[in-house]
Design a protein around this nucleic acid. Structure first.
Lengths: 230, 230
DNA sequence: AATGTACAACTTGTATCTATGTTGCGTTCA
DNA sequence: TGAACGCAACATAGATACAAGTTGTACATT
C-alpha cells in the first residue's frame, strides 16, 4: 500500500512552473567544483574541505555538502567522515576502460540506428555537424572544435534512443574530458585527421556497415588517445 | 596550478581509519527510501517531502536532504524547488532499454572474458553459482534464488573487469529489480527453466561462443520478462 | 456564474549552532 | 633517543532556525 498516496503532483516529470532567477547555491558548488576537477585545477588525490569551498564561493557549508554528495554519487570524489573530501584519482585502467566502453556503446548505437532504418538520416545529420566543425577549425575556434567533436559522438548515442546509454555516455564524456583536458587541437593537421575520420565514420553509418564502424572507431579513438598521452 | 595543493592525504582511495559503530543517518535515509522505491512502497509519480521522511525516520531534514540528492543523482527522483521530491516513473521504454543495455553489456563482457582466455575459469565459477542457486530452490528459499540469479549476471560483468561497466550494470540491476519486484519464482517449473538457461549460457562461455551467448541471453531475458509483464 | 485576489499552509534553501570524531604535535616520561 | 600521552586545531554530522517560494482555497468583485 502506498505510503501516503501523494498530494497533487506536478504531472509526471514536467518542468518546474517557474524558472529561477538566482542559481541555487548547491548547483553552483556542484558545477564549479566539477569544472575544477575536469580541468585539473583540482588534481586527483587532493583532499579538500567543505569550509574551504564554502569560504571561497561565499556560501554556507550546507550547499557545499549538497554539491559534494552529488559529486561523490557520480564518482568524482570520496567523502571521508570527519576528514574531508578526496578527489578521486583517474585510476590506471580508466583510459582503457573509457575507450572500451565508448566503442561498445557507440557501435551498438550504430547497429540500432541502421537496423531501424535511420542510417542515412543520421549520417546526414553527422555530416552537418562535421561541416560546422570544419568551419570552427577554419575560424581558429579551437574550443568550439573540441566541443563539436564531442557532440559528434554523442549525437550517435542520442539518436539510438536508449536513455540509459545516453546517461552513461554523458559520464564517459566527462571522464574523457578530464583525461584529455590538457591537450588542444592546435595543430590543424591533427584536426584535419579527426575530421577525416569522422567523415569515414559517417559514411560507414550511411552504408550500414556496423563492423566497419566498430573497427574504424577503435582506431580513431586509439589514435587520438596516443597523441595525447605519450 | 593546484588550488591549495592539499594537506596530507589518506593514501589514495584507502578506507577510513576507523569503522563507524552507528550507521550514518544520511545512508539510512538513502537506503530506506531507495528500498521503498524499488519494492513499490513508493510508487512512481508520488510526491514526497523531506519533512515526512524526516519525521518517519526520526532524523532531521539535513540527512534526508543528503539522501534525496543522492537518489536524484542516480535518477530515482526529481527534486522540484519548494515543491517536493517526485519519484520518477519507470518510463514507457525503460523495460526495453534495460534489456537492450543488459544484452550489450553482458555480451561484451563475455567477449572480453573469452578473448583474454578466461572463459573456462569463469564458466566454472558460474556453474558453482548455479549449483548454489539450485540448492536454494530445493530449500524453497525464493529470496536467495532471486538474489543468486542477479549475481549470476553480475558476475559475468564483474569478471570482465571494466569498472565503468560494473557501475553501470549496478544501475541496470536496480532498475530491473524495480520492474520485476512484484513477481517471485514461486513456480519451480519456471525456476528450473531459468536454471537451464543459465547452464546453457555458462556452456556457451566455456565454448567461447560470443554470438551464441548473445542470442541465448536475448531469448532468456525476453522470456523471463514476458512472464512478468503479461 | 466566472474571475481575480489575498492569505494560510506547506515546502524547500540556506545559515548557523552544537556535538563529536580525527589528526598532528608538543610534552613528558622511561 | 624514542614511545606514549594529552590537547588544541580542524573537519564533518546532524539539528534547528529562519527566510522565501508555491499552491490551493476562501472570498470579494464583476
Amino acid at each position: 500500500m502506498p505510503q501516503k498516496s501523494a498530494r497533487p503532483r506536478p504531472d509526471a516529470d514536467s518542468a518546474p512552473t517557474q524558472e529561477r532567477h538566482t542559481a541555487p547555491a548547491g548547483d553552483l558548488v556542484y558545477q564549479e567544483v566539477k569544472a575544477r576537477i575536469l580541468d585539473h585545477r583540482l588534481e586527483g588525490g587532493a583532499l579538500i574541505s567543505e569550509g574551504d569551498i564554502a569560504a571561497e564561493l561565499q556560501v554556507s557549508r550546507t550547499p557545499v555538502r549538497e554539491g559534494f554528495v552529488r559529486l561523490q554519487a557520480e564518482g568524482w570524489m570520496t567523502l571521508y567522515p570527519k576528514r574531508g573530501a578526496l578527489i578521486r584519482q583517474a585510476g590506471p585502467n580508466e583510459a582503457r576502460d573509457v575507450v572500451e566502453a565508448r566503442i561498445v556503446v557507440e557501435s551498438h548505437a550504430v547497429e540500432a540506428i541502421t537496423t531501424s532504418g535511420h542510417g542515412q538520416e543520421v549520417a546526414d545529420e553527422l555530416r552537418e555537424l562535421i561541416r560546422t566543425q570544419s568551419e570552427a577549425l577554419d575560424a581558429g575556434n579551437h574550443d568550439d572544435f573540441a566541443e563539436i567533436d564531442a557532440d559528434f559522438h554523442q549525437h550517435i548515442v542520442l539518436r539510438a534512443g536508449n536513455g540509459l546509454f545516453i546517461d552513461f555516455f554523458d559520464n564517459l564524456k566527462d571522464r574523457q574530458r578530464r583525461m584529455s583536458a590538457r591537450s588542444v587541437w592546435k595543430s590543424s593537421e591533427k584536426a584535419e585527421t579527426v575530421l577525416a575520420h569522422h567523415r569515414e565514420l559517417a559514411d560507414l553509418i550511411a552504408a550500414g556497415d556496423v563492423v566497419g564502424f566498430k573497427q574504424r572507431l577503435g582506431t580513431h579513438l586509439n589514435e587520438v588517445h596516443h597523441r595525447l598521452l605519450p
